[in-house]
């Protein structure tokens, strides 16, 4: 059982991995949202809880009374239009945002003390091409980058790094300079970096942006795999949620500084999404899969619908 092995990897070390195993046991590969919710109720307290988060810059309110929680092993999407405060919310969840009001608890601890339990993958990652770091070195820094003094050889540390690299499928380029890799490979390397300390919660800011179809869907599958097999809770922001739709358990959405959450069935509806983005959105069901598309096209007599000029002339209007 490959899955069982992975779970034992995730649960060894100093941490108590009992609830990882409990979640993983209760799961089958073709899991459904109901099972996840069930497991969450079994283990009780949410892994991440945010209450009344308010962030102001000057007099501009970026987030107002945002409240939501994520259970163990849940795969959540965070959506909202540009400038809705997605990145700000993620940053305040890990204690990087200055002066947020409200209460954030990760595994019952404030963010500054729960750094070991959270992995964060920032949005913009630009590694210099001459950076003398291999993927393996970056993952090692994920294990002990905050420690002072030189690093002495440690077998345990190297094994830990190897596990993280294997978990994201980065073995093929583990010994290459990180600056020379492709965007998708760098993204994987940073996820491995975030996974190095075996976190319980993984926060990713627009991981699918600027990736081609194949890399985006592979990355989405990888995140689903991490959540399912390793029992890690994942919160991921995305503009294009299509690659994620079949994997998400729940969607948290932000609009005008406020947040609400719901299941896929509740949120992925034309009305809700159109209201959220302030723009007509179509939801299409194709072969049992949901697809979210911006509703463009020549529709006569309707306001708020833009037509590409060339498209119109092509139709002879």
């Amino acid at each position: 059982m490959a899955y069982r092995e992975k779970v034992s990897i995730a649960s060894d070390g100093k941490r108590d991995g009992a609830d990882y195993e409990a979640i993983a046991e209760s799961r089958v590969p073709n899991y459904s949202a109901a099972i996840v919710k069930g497991s969450m109720e079994q283990t009780g307290t949410p892994l991440l809880s945010a209450e009344d988060i308010t962030v102001r810059i000057g007099t501009r309110v970026l987030l107002q009374n945002v409240t939501f929680s994520i259970g163990p092993g849940e795969f959540c999407g965070l959506i909202g239009e540009n400038g809705a405060g997605k990145t700000t919310l993620l940053r305040s969840l890990i204690g990087l945002q200055h002066s947020p009001h409200g209460r954030v608890r990760v595994c019952g601890l404030p963010p500054a003390k729960a750094r070991d339990w959270v992995g964060y993958v920032p949005q913009k990652i630009n590694f210099a091409p001459d950076l003398p770091l291999r993927v393996f070195d970056l993952v090692l820094l994920g294990c002990d980058g905050h420690r002072l003094g030189p690093r002495w050889f440690s077998r345990r540390l190297r094994e830990q790094a190897h596990k993280a690299i294997c978990a994201v499928g980065a073995e093929g380029f583990a010994y290459q300079r990180i600056g020379e890799l492709s965007g998708g490979q760098q993204q994987r390397a940073v996820i491995a970096h975030a996974m190095a300390r075996q976190p319980r919660l993984l926060l990713l800011d627009e991981p699918l942006a600027n990736l081609d179809f194949r890399s985006a869907s592979e990355l989405a599958q990888l995140l689903g795999h991490l959540s399912r097999v390793h029992g890690i809770s994942v919160l991921v922001t995305a503009h294009d949620i299509n690659p994620l739709l079949s994997l998400l358990d729940r969607i948290v959405y932000l609009a005008k500084g406020r947040a609400a959450s719901g299941s896929i069935e509740e949120v992925v509806q034309e009305e809700t999404l159109s209201r959220l983005y302030g723009y007509p959105v179509a939801v299409i069901k194709h072969g049992g899969k949901l697809l979210v598309l911006p509703d463009v096209g020549p529709r006569e007599g309707e306001d708020g619908c833009y037509v590409v000029p060339d498209a119109r002339s092509a139709e002879g209007v």
Partner: peptide
């Protein structure tokens, strides 16, 4: 430099990643 070796390296690689680790 040797005391700061690892934090410095991470901060050089990407300041955001360093901040996430509490550096």
């Amino acid at each position: 430099v040797s005391v700061l070796y690892r934090p410095l390296l991470l901060s050089v690689a990407d300041p955001e990643l360093a901040a996430t680790r509490g550096i």
